[in-house]
Simulated assay, not measured.
Amino acid sequence: MTDLDLYRHLDEMTPWDDRLQVLEVIGVSDEAPDVKTFTFRSDNQTWFRYKPGQFITLELPVGDEPVMRTYTLSSSPSRPFAIAVTVKAQPGSIGTRWMFESLKTGAHIKAYGPAGDFSHHSHPAAKYLFISAGSGITPMMSMLRWLNDCAPWTDVAFVNCARRPEEIIFRKELELLGSRMPGLSLGFLIEERSSRESWFGHMGRIDAVRLPLLAPDFREREVFCCGPEPFMRAVRQMLEAAGFDMACYHEESFGKPAIAPVPAPFSDAPPAEQPSADMAVAIRFAGSDVETMCVPDQTVLQAARAAGVRISAACEFGLCGTCKVKKLSGEVEMSHNGGILDEEIAEGYILCCCSKPLSALEIVA
Rank of each mutant, 00 (worst) to 15 (best):
T105E: 15
H123F: 12
M140S: 05
A89V: 10
M99P: 09
F100D: 06
Y128P: 03
C150P: 01
P182S: 06
D149A: 15
G113V: 11
K104W: 06
G106M: 02
K127C: 00
A89G: 04
K88Y: 14
A133L: 07
D155L: 08
A126M: 10
E175M: 12
G106I: 09
S76W: 01
A126S: 14
A133V: 11
G113W: 08
W153T: 14
L174D: 11
A82D: 13
I94S: 06
I94Q: 08
G134M: 08
A89R: 13
A111W: 04
T70I: 07
H123C: 04
L129I: 07
L177H: 04
V87E: 11
F170E: 06
T96Q: 06
I169E: 04
R145G: 01
P139L: 00
Y112K: 03
S102T: 11
P182R: 02
D149K: 09
P80D: 11
G113L: 05
L176K: 13
Y128V: 02
P80G: 13
T72G: 00
R180C: 10
M141P: 03
A157W: 04
G134T: 08
A162K: 10
D155K: 12
R163P: 05
A157K: 02
L73M: 15
H120M: 13
W146I: 01
A126C: 05
F100G: 04
R180H: 11
A84E: 11
I169F: 05
M99W: 05
V159F: 09
A162Q: 11
K110R: 15
T105I: 14
I131L: 11
K110A: 15
M140F: 02
N160P: 08
R171D: 10
M99R: 03
R164E: 15
E167R: 15
